[in-house]
Design a protein around this nucleic acid. Structure first.
Length: 443
RNA sequence: GUGAAAGUAGCUCAGUUGGUUAGAGCACUGGAUUGUGGAUCCAGAGGUCGCGGGUUCGAACCCCGUCUUUCACCCCA
């Protein structure tokens, strides 16, 4: 019986695995050089943990199960709640700020589409315990540090940034009540995702008052921070958060990442828990869904039963990123290589003075391969039964061997033929000398 | 979860109005070449035409269902 792979999952064949490892290794390398430490949690948690943050409708979007003890569990659709729990548990003993990263494997029971699968990897970076907008700048820098590392430029991607605190303050000064904010965010978040007409229709349903609506529509057209004050008069809080946004762009400039970043008042993020700076990273043509996004979530740890501690962070999924890098020709995983590929010539034996067979070339091949492996080198041999050396050299080529060793007649004089596969040059080397040199090389 | 389109070899695709044994390129295996790779040539293997049912003398082709993928919604933590 043939069993197909599950909807929305991927099989990682060696070539795919090379891509996945290349990407994740890059994330880890950049995280570490930006001063973040790696953490991870369990792949499933209590279902309640995800309901707490996002409500009941989210239950439909995740894979849940009941264990034999009747516990309601769910496979993690995100790692932030786990992070909150882990930090809360040790909050008093952890030095601040907490700069942690993770590359969790996540599952969401959504309908798969291009760039969105049911199982994926997500690079997460968080800074906990810093109020300063510098922390937001640092997380954005870190994301860009990686994206630049793999070759993306301001011509390829853009970070669209806004401030929820600012939006809240302005909307409240227009006359939108606290309770209306949340559903209104959901509408405003759609500005770039819907045709203008559909957007205005949604807005009309949400905001009955025409004067307010006109102001909001006008506000949503501003293209720079400076323009905001020309549309509405800023309250004290609004002015502070506009300044905060200004300071963020200053810092991003100072860090040399300013070319990637723009202000975009349409960035709201659907999620309820964001409290300040919010941003999303897109491909320049906006052909794909968001590459990643994040922002400040100052209330989340408290919501998970911890102290009132500010936090900011982002997530970048592997699916959209892989599509973008593929399109740009920037997907360059290292091919699997061998240091040595060991072959032998058939139809000879190695005899003692009396003519008794002491060993065969095949045994010598296995012996040498084992020795090289024990010395820490990547070494392999052919399982082909063919006597054709040609075929074995061909295999050495396809295996990306740097050097090919041939055990033949010259082995009787303790010599190996060592062929450099890149230059095609071949030399006779004394076997003991060869092993001594390899030993030095492997240190 | 709703609506739409697509599905032929490992990959990219051809396949005439429904007509005999479903093809090509790349990749793979063997040989040309029993001590020399990447090239070339020859050969081989690989298919229940996504799956199930129906119409028909006859189905890769038409109809229904289903699965998967993609697109538009919902959602996007």
């Amino acid at each position: 019986m043939k069993i197909p792979p599950v909807k929305g999952t991927r099989d990682f064949y060696p070539a795919d695995m090379a891509v996945r490892n290349w990407m994740i290794d890059g994330w880890k390398k950049v995280s570490l050089r930006n001063g973040f430490e790696e953490y991870d949690g369990p792949i499933f948690e209590y279902l309640k943990m995800f309901q707490l943050k996002s409500g009941d409708e989210i239950v439909e979007q995740l894979f849940s199960l009941k264990d034999r003890g009747g516990r309601e569990l769910a496979i993690r659709p995100e790692i932030t709640p786990t992070l909150a729990r882990m930090v809360n548990q040790k909050i008093s003993s952890l030095p601040k700020p907490i700069k942690w990263f993770s590359v969790p494997r996540l599952c969401r029971a959504e309908r798969p589409q291009r760039g969105r699968l049911r199982e994926f990897f997500q690079w997460n970076i968080d800074i906990i315990g810093v109020d300063d907008v510098l922390a937001d700048a640092e997380t954005i820098f870190c994301a860009l540090d990686y994206l630049q590392e793999v070759g993306l430029t301001p011509n390829d991607i853009v970070v669209k940034i806004s401030n929820r605190k600012m939006l809240a303050a302005i909307l409240q000064s227009i006359g939108i009540s606290q309770g209306e904010l949340e559903p209104l965010y959901a509408v405003l978040d759609k500005r770039d995702k819907l045709p203008q007409e559909a957007f205005e229709e949604m807005l009309t349903k949400q905001v009955g008052d025409e004067n307010k609506r006109t102001l909001i529509l006008k506000l949503m057209t501003v293209e720079s921070i400076e323009q905001i004050s020309s549309v509405v008069e800023l309250s004290k809080t609004a002015k502070e958060s506009v300044d905060e946004l200004g300071r963020l762009f200053e810092l991003l400039d100072v860090m040399g990442a300013g070319d990637f970043c723009v202000f975009d008042i349409g960035i709201v993020r659907g999620l309820a828990y964001y409290t300040g700076i919010v941003y999303e990273i897109y491909d320049k043509e906006s052909e794909l869904r968001a590459i990643g996004g994040g922002g400040r979530y100052d209330n989340l740890l408290k919501q998970f039963g911890g102290p009132n501690i500010p936090a900011t962070g982002f997530g970048v999924g592997d699916c959209v990123l892989a599509i973008l890098l593929e399109e740009k020709g920037l997907l360059k995983p290292k091919p699997q290589e061998l240091d040595y590929f060991i072959t032998f010539v058939s139809n000879i034996t190695f005899n003692d003075k009396e003519g008794n067979i002491q060993s065969t070339p095949e045994d010598e091949m296995v012996k040498l391969t084992a020795k090289l492996r024990r010395l820490g080198l990547k070494a392999d041999f052919s399982y082909k039964l063919t006597e054709s050396l040609s075929k074995k050299l061909k295999e050495a080529s396809t295996r990306n061997a740097q050097k090919c060793i041939i055990i033949g007649e010259e082995f009787k004089d303790n010599q190996l033929s060592v062929k450099d596969m890149a230059t095609g040059q071949q030399e006779l080397v004394d076997i003991n000398k060869f092993l001594a040199e390899v030993k030095l090389q492997s240190r």
